[in-house]
Simulated scan of single mutants.
Amino acid sequence: MRIEQLAEQFGISAMTIHRDLDELEDQGLLRKSRGVATATSTALVESSDAYRVGRQHAEKEAMALAAMEYIEPNQAIMLDDSTSAMHLIPHLSTTTPLKVITNTLTIMNELRGTRGIEMIGLGGEYYNWCSAFMGRMTVREIAELRADLFVMSTSAIVDDICFHQTLETVDVKRAMFEAASVRVLLADSTKFEKRALHAMLPLSDFDVVIVDAGIDQRHVTRLRENGVNVQIARRPSAGR
Results as ranks from 00 to 15, higher is better:
Ser33Met: 08
Leu111Arg: 00
Met200Val: 05
His87Asp: 10
Glu8Pro: 00
Val220Trp: 10
Arg234Met: 13
Gly11Trp: 01
Gly135Thr: 09
Thr166Leu: 10
Arg2Tyr: 13
Phe133Gln: 02
Gly214Ile: 00
Asn103Arg: 00
Thr114His: 06
Gly123Ala: 11
Ala14Pro: 04
Thr94Lys: 12
Ile107Val: 14
Cys130Gln: 13
Asp22Val: 01
Met78Glu: 01
Pro73Trp: 08
Thr221Gln: 15
Tyr126Ser: 05
Gly135Phe: 12
Leu21Cys: 07
Cys162Val: 10
Ala67Ser: 12
Ala143Arg: 12
Glu8Trp: 02
Glu61Arg: 00
Leu201Cys: 13
Gln56Asp: 15
Ala143Lys: 11
Asp148His: 08
Val209Ser: 03
Met200Gln: 15
Met134His: 10
Ala58Ser: 14
Met68Tyr: 11
Asn128Thr: 15
Arg31His: 13
Ala43Gly: 14
Ile77Gly: 00
Ile120Phe: 04
Phe192Arg: 06
Gly227Arg: 10
His219Gly: 04
Leu197Gly: 03
His87Cys: 06
Ala213Leu: 09
Gln217Lys: 07
Ser204Cys: 09
Glu8His: 11
Arg19Ile: 01
Ala50Asn: 11
Ala213Lys: 08
Tyr126Cys: 05
Ser41Met: 07
Leu111Tyr: 05
Tyr126Met: 12
Leu65Gln: 14
Val172Trp: 05
Met152Lys: 03
Val209Met: 08
Thr106His: 05
Asp207Ser: 11
Ser33Lys: 11
Glu4His: 09
Ser82Ala: 15
Ser48Asp: 12
Ser48Tyr: 05
Ala179Arg: 00
